[in-house]
Amino acid sequence: MTEKSLCTHPDDQYLISHFKNEDSKHYAFNLLVKKYQQKVYWHIRKMVVDHNDTDDLTQEVFLKVWKNLSNFREDAALFTWLYRIATNESLNFLKKKRRRFMLPINDVTKELSKKIDNDPLIEGSDIERKLQKVLLTLPDRQRLVFNMKYFEDLPYKEIAKILEVTEGSLKASYHIAVKKIQQLLGNDLL
């Protein structure tokens, strides 16, 4: 791979090694953000729905990456580590939101459903919007597993590493989510 192609499509090892070098730290971080920002944004967006909240959380994720990448042990892939941070930030945000506003899960679901209807950034047909609303009725972890498997097409092995759970529990969680969605939308959708 040439230096030019590394600049446009750097591999993770290149990013990590250049980040750990003080002279190229900022450059490597900019490349890392360019490579992963959109994936991280949409991963978070599927969980928190609101664009502004997602934007804030995406910035938080990359701030944590900036602070901790020098200590990254590389016992997992960089992608896995980033997704783990994004996942934890999303789940913590949703917990805080419920506690802060003392909202029961149904009220949070209604609030997020309204955002799906009113947000110009959420594109799609009526059936896609219905699916997004049905997903909001799932427990957060179950919705997360469904999103990662169905929308992002991540293998169970990768999801298991990100969430630090067994593949068997993921498969069960995904299966239960699919059954719930089929019940609410109809069997022919998934």
Rank of each mutant, 00 (worst) to 15 (best):
S90A: 15
T58P: 01
L69V: 03
K64E: 13
K96M: 07
T54Y: 02
T80H: 01
I85V: 11
K64H: 12
K67A: 09
T58H: 01
V48A: 01
I85D: 04
N92L: 12
W81L: 04
D75N: 09
A77H: 09
A86S: 13
I85P: 01
V65H: 05
E89L: 08
F72V: 06
T87C: 08
R84N: 13
F72T: 04
K95E: 15
N71W: 08
E74P: 05
L57Q: 00
I85T: 10
N88A: 10
L82W: 02
Q59D: 12
S90M: 05
E89V: 07
D50W: 03
F62T: 03
R73I: 07
W66N: 07
L78I: 10
F62K: 00
L57F: 11
V49A: 10
F79K: 12
V49G: 07
V48P: 01
W81A: 06
K95W: 08
K64P: 03
R99P: 05
K64Q: 14
E89A: 09
V65I: 14
I85H: 05
H51V: 14
D55P: 03
Q59H: 12
E89T: 04
R99E: 14
A76C: 11
N52V: 13
D50V: 10
A77R: 10
L57G: 05
K95I: 13
D50N: 12
T58L: 06
S90H: 06
V49Y: 09
F79A: 11
L63F: 12
S70D: 15
L63D: 02
D56F: 04
K95Q: 15
I85F: 04
M47R: 03
A76F: 07
K95M: 12
F62I: 00
W66S: 13
L69C: 02
A86V: 07
D53L: 11
W81F: 05
